[in-house]
């Protein structure tokens, strides 16, 4: 896809970053306000599709690396599981690192919501990685179908040309 007009790219320059900040805010405040990892992750992943629409595939693929999104997609669910396992002395998925009475932080560097906010961040990380990776892969496949590059000689459903 070719880049869009100057108006669109300028609007993208100004507003796209607000989407990232807004998504990060939703993820970070999931334990206090509506939203959480899934919703915030979807908002952040929209940023990539906005970039693709505004700047075109060539520039965006030069900026981003698929491996980072793949790592995030793997790291998110794994860390979520690990934070869930922290509650094993009580039960699985128990907020074990927060003070039971609530409100008072157990440590200065831990969030007062305990594992819930850490799980929020984990899920947000996983959703951002997975959705961004899906967008990139499906976008690349359009280019593959149009040009036939990277399809191993395959065309359409018919693997062997007759």
């Amino acid at each position: 896809m070719r880049p869009m007009s100057v108006v669109v790219t300028k609007v993208c320059d100004i507003f796209a970053w607000f989407m990232v900040v807004f998504g990060a805010l939703i993820i970070n405040n999931g334990h206090n306000t509506p939203g959480g990892g899934f919703q915030g992750g979807a908002v952040v992943a929209t940023f990539l599709s906005f970039l693709l629409a505004a700047y075109g595939s060539r520039r965006v693929f030069a900026w981003v690396r698929e491996n980072i999104f793949g790592f995030m997609a793997c790291f998110g669910p794994l860390s979520f599981f690990v934070f869930g396992c922290l509650g094993f002395p009580h039960s699985f998925f128990f907020n074990s690192i927060a003070v039971p009475e609530g409100g008072q932080p157990i440590s200065d560097w831990l969030p007062y919501a305990g594992t819930i906010s850490l799980m929020d961040l984990s899920v947000g990380c996983g959703v951002v990685g997975a959705l961004s990776m899906i967008i990139l892969l499906m976008y690349k496949s359009i280019h593959m179908v149009e040009t036939g590059e990277g399809m191993g000689g395959e065309r359409g459903h018919d693997r062997f040309e007759r």
Partner: peptide, 26 residues
């Protein structure tokens, strides 16, 4: 809110009481 130290009851449901469901979604 008291048990799970989260002001948002929905989040404490999704990430704590029903954590298994959320890991399935992930």
């Amino acid at each position: 809110p008291e048990d799970r130290s989260s002001h948002n009851v929905v989040t404490s449901m999704v990430f704590d009481y029903r954590g298994f469901d959320t890991i399935g979604e992930a």
